[in-house]
Amino acid sequence: MIKYYNRKENKYETEKVAGEKYLNWSYSSPAGKGLVELLLKKKLFSKLYGFYCDTKTSSRKIKNFIKEFDIDMSKYDRSYNEYSSFNEFFIRSLKPGARKIDKNNNTLISPCDGKISAYENVNLNKIVQIKGFTYSLKELLQDDKTYNSYNEGTCLIFRLCPTDYHRFHFIDNGICGDTTKIKGHYYSVNPVALKNIKKLFCQNKREWSIFHSDNFGDAIYMEVGATCVGTIVQSYSNGCKVVKGEEKGYFKFGGSTVIILFKKNAVKIDEDLLNQSRLGFETSVLMGEKIGLK
Score class of each variant (00 low, 15 high):
A98T: 05
V243C: 07
N105G: 13
P191A: 08
L261K: 00
Y76A: 07
Y52A: 02
N104I: 00
I101R: 00
A31G: 01
Y119F: 15
G19E: 03
I259N: 05
V233H: 01
R278V: 05
K126E: 15
Y187N: 13
R60E: 15
Y221D: 01
E9S: 15
R99S: 06
Y83H: 07
P111R: 01
Q129W: 09
F262E: 05
T283L: 06
F90I: 05
L39E: 01
I101N: 00
S28M: 12
N24V: 05
N151V: 14
E68S: 15
L160S: 05
D214W: 01
R60K: 15
E282S: 11
G217N: 06
Y52T: 07
T231V: 04
R7C: 08
N6P: 08
Y27S: 03
S110D: 06
Y76Q: 06
P111C: 13
Y187C: 01
S277Q: 09
D272I: 13
Q129K: 08
N125S: 15
Y165E: 12
Y27W: 06
S85Y: 04
T227C: 14
Y135K: 01
I171A: 02
L194H: 06
G177H: 04
N148A: 13
Y165S: 08
L293T: 12
N204K: 04
L39I: 14
N265F: 10
Y165W: 13
L40W: 11
V267I: 14
G239W: 09
E82Q: 14
R99V: 07
P162T: 14
E152K: 15
S28Y: 00
T231A: 03
L261R: 04
A266T: 08
D143S: 06
L35C: 07
L140R: 04
L39M: 13
I2R: 11
K131N: 12
Y76S: 03
K67H: 15
T179G: 00
N215Y: 08
Y150E: 09
G184Q: 05
R206N: 09
D77T: 11
T179K: 10
G177D: 13
R99W: 09
V189E: 09
D214H: 02
K115P: 02
S84Q: 07
T179P: 00
K199I: 02
Y4A: 10
I109T: 08
G245P: 01
I130G: 00
K268A: 12
G288I: 05
T257F: 13
Q129A: 06
F211G: 01
K3T: 13
M1D: 12
V224L: 11
G254W: 09
Y147R: 08
P96H: 04
L23A: 00
N275M: 12
G114V: 06
